[in-house]
Design a protein around this nucleic acid. Structure first.
Lengths: 237, 237
DNA sequence: CGTCGAATTGACTAGGATCAACTAGTGTGG
DNA sequence: CCACACTAGTTGATCCTAGTCAATTCGACG
């Protein structure tokens, strides 16, 4: 497959369900129980924090963010999820986060009880949870210890697939090191995800543009001119 | 049981393994496979981020923190775990965090393979993970959206059992609303957990003392004079 | 009593928040 | 097709919280 450096990548920043061994058993199970398919528009609310958690969701297509609110309205987005991810599995009987779509999204939901009765499929769930948890660990580092620029750079970097891993070898040989990404998030959502304000996010974007790191093609479509350079701004190296 | 308001509570701030239905099956399993008991002193390192993850750990007794480092040395503590909690189950083959004891600790470890082969015990693991995840969500809110005072207040509040839940009714009738807690963490560890610096943590403690909210009996033993008042400082109400 | 590391306190700085003004982009209706 | 309104985003000026750097105090231990 050709390396399409102008392709707009769209899902790598999301926590996926891992493609795992349990996949087949999982889909058999999902077909055996009473599931519901629901369609949501962009920025629709799926449930609120504190709602009774009687259904568990799997993302068929689209993207969902989970967030929590403080009573004075401050919001913190804690997870961004993509296809195959599971959410709405609460440790107690109540959702501990609100869930909202980032793009038009298709979900499959099932009764929580059906899931709980099915013990031998827990491995699939476990892997999804572990994957989400590692992302949360990284996110805690971002929130607790990174500067505004590092946060935004890390955020943009999530959208680039196959880069920044342990043995990242830089851009594919002979290719320019650029990448265009579509964010599908408002500045407010980005700010709430990164623990910043709208204004700071905007200023960092402008600053990166001024320094030639990125081009803002549309407000939510950004060309990264030098992925490797951006990576160095993330604070991870 | 009498309500001992001078008792030094010691574990409520840690993520526990939930006392669940799977408990019996879990302990049967742990007895059936080849486990190792290891003892660690306070502030011992159990493993480093990036180590090969071949063993999974259960806390028998004590407390463990998980943290990540940025290359320039900035550290972020992402979880604090207590008895029955599981850790060292990686989504990939490598530990994504370092683990260090907070107090002298006893661990039981088993080979990761033994755990993975045992599918029907995943429910116990799932519940541990879900419980840890909810804490991580709350922690993200703390790191992303709370002030220094709110962070420290939330931190202290973790040490107080049975308070701050949805239907918290205030102090037990007729009792003073105070509580003495032992932190078992250095200022540096607290700072890294809360995304602050040593100095800020120290200043907030001093300020709370000046305002009569707490008394610092020893550097790591603190009397909360008014639990309800502290709760209001957490930003959660 | 002296030493050493941890904690506290003080003075100063800076990064990001706040508040306000302005601009661009989108949709509506005449 | 353009005028207008409305929202999202950008930019600027100022403020303030928490960070930095340095000096001092505290506490544990030999």
């Amino acid at each position: 497959m050709a390396y399409l450096h102008n392709e707009i990548r769209n899902e790598t920043h999301l926590v996926p369900g891992l493609p795992v061994d349990g996949e087949q058993a999982w889909s058999d199970f999902m077909n055996s129980v009473n599931t519901k398919i629901c369609r949501f528009a962009q920025h629709d609310v799926i449930f609120y924090e504190g709602d009774m958690a009687d259904r568990v969701f799997e993302i068929v297509e689209g993207a969902v963010m989970l967030y929590k609110l403080l009573p004075d309205g401050r919001r913190q987005v804690v997870e961004m999820l993509g296809p195959q991810a599971l959410f709405g599995i609460p440790a107690h009987g109540i959702y501990d986060c609100a869930a909202e779509t980032l793009v038009p999204t298709v979900l499959r939901s099932l009764r929580r009880r059906d899931l709980e009765e099915q013990m031998d499929l827990q491995q699939h769930i476990t892997r999804c949870l572990l994957s989400q948890m590692e992302r949360l660990h990284d996110h805690a580092v971002l929130l607790g210890r990174k500067s505004a620029t590092e946060r935004v750079a890390s955020f943009l970097f999530r959208f680039v697939a196959n880069r920044g891993g342990v043995g990242c070898t830089g851009p594919a040989k002979g290719e320019t090191d650029e990448e265009t990404v579509r964010l599908n998030m408002t500045r407010q959502e980005i700010a709430d995800f990164l623990g910043l304000t709208i204004e700071t996010v905007s200023r960092v974007f402008s600053d990166m543009k001024r320094r030639g790191v990125i081009c803002i093609e549309k407000t939510d479509q950004i060309r990264i001119n030098n992925v490797c350079g951006l990576c160095h701004l993330t604070g991870a190296h």
